[in-house]
Write a protein that binds this DNA or RNA. Structure first.
Lengths: 232, 232
DNA sequence: CCAATGCTTCGACTAGGGTCGAAGTATGAA
DNA sequence: TTCATACTTCGACCCTAGTCGAAGCATTGG
């Protein structure tokens, strides 16, 4: 009668709202602590703890310990793909192309991912920095090169101050809407902050949308754009 | 806080064992009645009826009436893909319900996945095309090379006609039984159709099984087999 | 050593939902 | 019409599983 893997167990795991929120938060690719995830899911830490244990037992997430913090991530790319597939279903009977409302379009172009830039612009920034040799991929890690240091200083970012924090300088962050990396970590955060200070863009209140001015777009493309192939 | 569609609702729908069994049964692509699905899920018809109503409200399944029968099918290919993705996760997590009867063996060797070839043969085809440079993996995408174009033309597939459709030409599709890719997309569909026209294989009525003839096997291995290491 | 922080376990409460018997509706056949 | 089949709705039962308060570990810092 029953053939194939037990799909219901895994689906039931995702089927709880709190757990779904946790997984959704982790789809940013960023590693988050139990306390952060509890806030994201809207439950207490005790509850989140039990959920995290179940998700881990179901091999949907993994963790690594760092001091007294426990950082959780999705267990692998297949998990992300499955979640995306479910998102596609939940979005409605839409075709493969996600129906893009006006708000979605803005979200896709530029948005904050916790504190750094994501979306098309975020990807463009990442590619631009890579092309300029400012950052370099080292396995799954990301390192800031000498050129990157100089570029940041020229951009007006106090690199030395960033290095004092416990947050890693550079971290790749997977974008679920495009499945490509953008730049997270202390540098990612500082660069977004700097762009806002320079008036290139500003965050639309109450949303995740980052609104770029025309001048901001031009300045961005000039400084970080990769061979004129910048996002629209 | 909450971004994106409500994934938990859909997942909870799939998360019930009875409903998961129903969906699993419908993955054959065959249309089944409420009574048949009740038997498949191991519940009474009343229970199945409520489940079917919920699945339909969640747009996971659809029905058409024929006399006093109500035939249910999956609502679309996206549903099937999401289920396959979940199966991949469940298989990886070790929640296997291995029940390999003779029917399952045939299913494992060659079956349809919606409209293209899956199972051992499907994987062999994918590997063979890769080895011949007909397709190339580009991140999570799959591209048809010049060699691939030539190979398809030689095989008797009208490539130009395929390119007119909105469906992507090549798409990797993860096989839950082996956790390896096989070829989906317009090309995948066209190749299976062509094989049936050539008499290499035919679909067994009412099931997902693809039955290869001895001559078909030989022809398949000769044209697409990878260094004699073809599936049995 | 103690205090603070981050996370886990225990226990009890509760709600939501799956389940089936029984009765109700619709369709087709005799 | 009358009966049979296919499916749905209602009502009631039961039980899993999510939730949080409180207490228990574990790690870090002083």
């Amino acid at each position: 009668m029953k053939e194939g893997p037990d799909i219901s167990r895994i689906a039931a795991l995702i089927g709880d709202p709190a757990r779904a929120n946790i997984l959704g938060a982790l789809m940013s690719g960023k590693a988050l602590t139990a306390t952060e995830l509890a806030a994201e899911a809207g439950v207490t830490v005790q509850t989140a703890s039990t959920h995290l244990a179940k998700l881990e037992a179901g091999r949907l997430i993994a963790h690594r310990k760092s001091g007294r913090h426990k950082y959780f991530t999705l267990a692998g790319t297949e998990v992300g793909h499955a979640l995306e597939a479910l998102m596609g279903l939940a979005a409605g009977a839409g075709h493969l192309r996600t129906r893009t409302g006006p708000r979605d379009l803005a979200l896709r172009e530029a948005r904050v991912c916790y504190n750094h830039l994501a979306g098309e612009r975020g990807i463009a920034l990442y590619q631009g920095l890579l092309a300029r040799g400012a950052i370099a991929e080292d396995g799954s890690a990301l390192i800031l090169t000498e050129e990157g240091n100089a570029l940041l200083a020229d951009f007006g970012v106090d690199v030395a101050a960033l290095q004092k924090g416990r947050v890693p300088m550079c971290r790749p962050c997977l974008d679920w809407s495009a499945r490509r990396n953008h730049l997270a970590g202390a540098v990612g955060r500082a660069m977004l902050a700097r762009m806002q200070v320079l008036g290139w863009c500003k965050r639309v209140e109450g949303t995740r949308v980052i609104d770029f001015s025309a001048a901001g777009r031009a300045a961005f493309d000039g400084r970080f754009g990769v061979s004129g192939a910048a996002a629209s």
